[in-house]
């Protein structure tokens, strides 16, 4: 019988908590998965052992995993993973890796899965304007969206076996350019507060930044904000030609909710909209909509959050 395999999500050298969601997704395919932890030091795999629901954990140990290289990682993981359906996270890096591993095995890849029903998998298409359900008739590599599947409960103590592996690196990192601010990137954050043209001026983004600091959130922007103001970089842009994000909470401030903006954030778990125009399309997608100017609403939001988080 072929197995189900989870590739642990590694962020900054540690097993990320979304890995527990991958275990749940893999179980939905029928069996307790083997979890593969790509690492340079087998101790990293300890981070996965308390997640219950895995049949076993393989610490795949290699120097290759010090820096990301698609070719090297795919080869090193392929070498230790049994055959079967492979599940990884739909993060930018893991989607890239998933595609490479699938190609290496001559099988298909299905990205951004949000629902698993037997061998039927559902993913958003047309930037979330429709959903597509496909049937698998063979092994495949899947990536699943974060914050969709419940996390497997903690309290497990799955045994870890350490396996040395290797792969040829094709690219080499020359330098890292750390972001000037220590604030999270929108692609990495579980809470995002974004500003649009309605913020009036890039200077007013400080109000978003201070709420972001209170919440440990990232600051995002609409394309109108990025295109209008030079000091708002494209890396902050959410949407069709920016980043696709799946946070637990997305707060849109002074953003109208154009279809291309929605494309990047509509699958957020909770959406808050602050806009002075009651007819702004963003309100149709908001769980909590506040019809007000940001000048009115943000100070109240800031002070309430500050006392709540204190």
């Amino acid at each position: 019988m072929s197995e189900t395999i989870v590739i642990a999500e590694i962020v900054k050298g540690a097993v990320h908590s979304t890995t527990a969601e991958l275990i749940t997704a893999a179980q939905a395919l029928g069996s307790q998965p083997v979890v593969i932890v790509p690492c340079t030091d087998a101790g990293t795999a300890d981070g996965a052992s308390e997640m219950s629901g895995a049949s076993r954990i393989i610490a795949a140990k290699s120097d290759v995993f010090a820096n990301y290289d698609a070719a090297g990682w795919a080869a090193a993981i392929d070498a230790v993973a049994p055959s079967g359906v492979i599940v990884a996270s739909a993060s930018p890096q893991s989607k890239d890796l998933a595609a490479r591993i699938a190609a290496r095995r001559g099988i298909s890849v299905v990205q951004d899965v949000v629902k698993i029903d037997g061998h039927n998998l559902t993913s958003p298409i047309y930037s979330g304007k429709a959903m597509q359900t496909v049937a698998l008739s063979g092994d495949a590599v899947l990536t699943v969206r974060p914050n969709v599947f419940d996390a497997a409960p903690s309290g497990g103590s799955t045994e870890i076996s350490v396996v040395d592996t290797t792969g040829d690196m094709a690219t080499a990192v020359q330098e890292f350019m750390a972001r000037a601010s220590s604030r999270l990137d929108v692609a990495e954050a579980n809470i995002i507060i974004s500003g649009g043209r309605g913020m009036g001026s890039p200077d007013n983004f400080v109000h978003l930044e201070s709420i972001a600091d209170t919440l440990g959130a990232a600051v995002g922007a609409s394309r109108a904000a990025v295109d209008t103001w030079e000091s708002i970089p494209h890396s902050m842009q959410v949407g069709q030609t920016g980043k696709t994000v799946n946070p637990n909470l997305y707060i849109a401030v002074g953003i109208s909710g154009a279809i291309q903006h929605l494309a990047g954030m509509r699958s957020s778990k909770y959406i808050v909209a602050i806009n002075k125009d009651a007819d702004a399309p963003i309100f149709q997608h908001a769980d909590y909509g506040i019809v007000a100017t940001w000048e009115e609403a943000l100070p109240v939001l800031q002070s309430t959050l500050s006392s709540m988080m204190a």
């Binding site: 039927n120 429709a130 959903m131 008739s137 602050i274 997608h285 506040i290 007000a292 609403a297």
Partner: peptide, 25 residues
């Protein structure tokens, strides 16, 4: 080996709560 079974519209979100005025924040 991956075949399309069906397309559908995204599940409709239940209508959210809406508020007037900044104090609602």
């Amino acid at each position: 080996t991956v075949s399309v079974v069906s397309h559908s519209m995204p599940p409709a979100k239940p209508a959210g709560k809406s508020y007037e005025g900044g104090a609602a924040a």
